[in-house]
Amino acid sequence: MNFTLKIWRQKSREAEGGFKTYAVKDIPPDASFLELLDVLNADLIRKGEEPIAFDHDCREGICGSCGLVINGRSHGPHKGAATCEQRMRNFRDGEEITVEPWRAKPFPILKDLVVDRTAFDRIMLAGGYVSVRTGGAPDANAIPIPKPVADEAMDAAACIGCGACVAACKNASAMLFVAAKVSQLALLPQGQAERVERAERMIAQMDAEGFGACSNTYACEAECPKKISVTHIARLNREFIRAKLI
């Protein structure tokens, strides 16, 4: 398959960026989107040009490192898949594809398609954990959790922290991300100890980082590679109000 790629190039955080057009030829339909960029980069290196910088690691949709806006969509057109899981067979032969980094103020561009997502790390630090003091191992059956509850917690835990929700949102809101983290722990007994502070502190940090507010357009749910539902945002709001009342 052949493609024309319009890719955002930017030398550094401070530098001004712009689109550059590249042609790539003979890409096997089973190649992933990142493998397409690998092929292009190998060509660029041979020509002595700087390859396109992009983040990636596991390349199987679980680490959350990769994340590109492809044809205006976070992670590209194929639903429920991270950028690394997009296969070229889902594009049209000869298609012109536009590739941009996540665009949101709290995610400054470091180079080309690489953005700084440490804002998410700081939100996690503000409460996205449970503290455990170990003693004797508890009996695994001593705290029964109903399957629907466990399933819902698992659905929230599927969040890989990639930032697609922020990039998809017109307000650059991080509500779906924070909701997934808060919801996962609020549903489980292990998360109860810090439940109140968690909701308050994570939301305060989210605001401090400059993420926008939620205006219920559900763009985040539509673009989430893990198909996380906005019902978790509803739970986050309840957790927040609960924290204010307790």
Binding site: I27, P28, D30, A31, S32, L34, E35, D38, V39, R59
Partner: peptide, 8 residues
């Protein structure tokens, strides 16, 4: 593996 382009 399905082809030589494969990265992982």
């Amino acid at each position: 593996q399905s082809g030589a382009y494969q990265s992982k």
